[in-house]
Simulated scan of single mutants.
Amino acid sequence: MTSQTLSHPYVGMWETTDGRIRHQLLPNGRYDEARGSRESAYRGRYEVSGNHIEYWDDTGFTADGDFVDDVLHHAGMVLYRKQ
């Protein structure tokens, strides 16, 4: 885990407009993703480099995304910071 992961500005909750997909980016470099009523559907680690995020799920798959104008674009989904 890099110190940049711990100090990036994207820590917090991100969700789709319907609230169905929710990504909690934790300050320790871990994430927890909920899908619908299924809490902690996916968990793993992540790293942020600039505006790019890489995910490594605990089950072994990987994914990535980009933050554009404080919006997370990830795997065909658009997630917004939850206020």
Rank of each mutant, 00 (worst) to 15 (best):
E33H: 03
L6P: 12
Y10I: 12
M1K: 05
G44I: 03
S37R: 09
S49A: 15
G44A: 03
A34T: 12
D69G: 09
Y42S: 09
E54Q: 15
T2L: 04
G50P: 08
A34Y: 03
H74E: 14
K82H: 10
T59P: 00
D58H: 06
G60W: 02
T59I: 04
R81G: 00
T5A: 13
G12H: 12
D18T: 06
D32K: 15
G76M: 02
G36K: 03
R30M: 14
H23S: 02
A41V: 00
E47V: 15
T2H: 02
H74A: 11
M77Y: 02
V78P: 00
H8K: 12
D69Q: 13
D66M: 14
R35N: 01
M1C: 03
D18V: 06
A34C: 04
T16F: 08
T59M: 03
Q83V: 01
A63E: 01
S3R: 10
E39D: 11
R43Q: 12
H8I: 13
H52L: 12
I21L: 08
Y80P: 01
D69H: 09
P27I: 14
R30F: 08
I21Y: 06
N51M: 08
I53P: 09
R38F: 08
Y80N: 07
N51K: 13
G65I: 07
T59A: 07
D66V: 15
G65R: 04
R38C: 00
F61L: 08
M13Q: 15
Y80W: 00
D64E: 14
R22P: 01
T17W: 04
S3F: 06
H23G: 01
G44L: 01
E39Y: 06
T62Q: 10
D57K: 00
H74L: 10
G19Q: 05
